[in-house]
């Protein structure tokens, strides 16, 4: 009887663990899965910085072209 009881408790504990594990899985599933939303949306900031760098780069290329035109005239 005592043995049966302890086995029962062990099985019950297994289920508790399983329930806990299932909850773990659930909370994981709620977390955003795509790349941009990972790491606390940090990649959004990266994208924004890339846009700014790109914009300034285009501006500088434009400037470069103008300087080249002036150099040719010299």
């Amino acid at each position: 009887m005592n043995k049966l009881k302890s086995i029962g408790i062990v099985i019950a504990l297994c289920f508790i663990n399983a329930i806990g594990w299932a909850q773990d899985m659930n909370s994981k599933a709620e977390e955003p899965t795509d790349f941009m939303r990972s790491e606390g949306k940090l990649y959004v900031v990266v994208a924004v910085v890339v846009v700014i760098v790109f914009g300034i780069f285009i501006f500088l290329l434009n400037l470069d072209r103008k300087i080249k035109k002036l150099e040719k005239k010299m």
């Binding site: 941009m36 939303r37 959004v44 924004v48 846009v51 700014i52 914009g55 501006f59």
Partner: peptide, 21 residues
């Protein structure tokens, strides 16, 4: 001209941010 550059950059970065926020 430079003001427009920064305005456009502000608009694009705002759109990127808004897409995820």
């Amino acid at each position: 001209r430079a003001g427009i550059l920064f305005g456009v950059l502000g608009l694009i970065t705002g759109a990127v941010w808004a897409n995820y926020q």
